[in-house]
Computed example of a mutant assay.
Amino acid sequence: MNFLKRPNDFLFRLLLVVASLSLASLCVLVVYSVVMRYVFADAPDFVEPIALLLVIAIAMFGAALKVREGGHIGLDSFVKKLPQKGQTFVAGIQHVCLIAFAVAVFVGCLEMAETTMHDRIPILGLPEGLRYCIPIVASICIAMFSTEHLLALFARKQK
């Protein structure tokens, strides 16, 4: 199990830093935009496209982080009433569904990134496909984190 835990620990810390920096940057960017718009009557054009990229990074990487922590949405009140084997079974299904979701996001975003990579984000001039690269990375992390949880479930079941 260590073969997946160590890379996932590194990925978790890296995503945490990127999501945190994205959130801090978004806060600074919004304050800058508000001050420029309402104090100096000179709204910067570049704020909105950068903010959109930062929001995508925060949302997708935050979702991946919560999968690693096991803090994603669940029906705990129902699951806790099940016997231990039932709880393990439901947790296994949950992680298989998360992996299926991650694969669907990966495939869909990869297709969108390929078809929009030649287009440019207005004002920034960056490839439009960049918007879809962020969820691609997040979906890989979600799949890896869910696989780690599944392996941990099977390891507990073997004991």
Rank of each mutant, 00 (worst) to 15 (best):
A41V: 10
V47G: 11
G92V: 14
V35I: 15
A138R: 06
F145V: 02
D45T: 14
V90P: 03
G70K: 06
V39D: 05
Q94M: 10
V35A: 06
S77C: 02
G86M: 05
F40G: 11
A63Q: 04
L52G: 15
S33T: 06
P49Y: 08
D119M: 14
Y132L: 02
L124Q: 06
A155D: 10
V103W: 10
A59E: 02
P7N: 04
F78G: 12
F12T: 14
L65D: 00
A63W: 00
S139Y: 10
R131Y: 13
I99D: 04
L16P: 00
D45H: 14
V35W: 04
A102E: 01
M112P: 02
F154N: 05
A104R: 09
L130I: 13
L53D: 03
A57I: 11
I56T: 11
F46P: 10
V28L: 15
P122C: 01
R6H: 10
T147P: 02
A57R: 03
R6S: 08
V137P: 01
I50H: 05
L65C: 00
I123K: 03
S146I: 04
Q84M: 13
T88D: 06
P135C: 02
E111P: 00
G71Y: 05
S33K: 07
V47A: 15
F61A: 00
F61K: 01
L153V: 08
V90Q: 07
C97P: 04
M36H: 11
V31S: 04
G129E: 03
G86V: 05
F78T: 13
P49I: 07
D119L: 15
G71E: 03
G71R: 14
S33H: 07
Q84K: 15
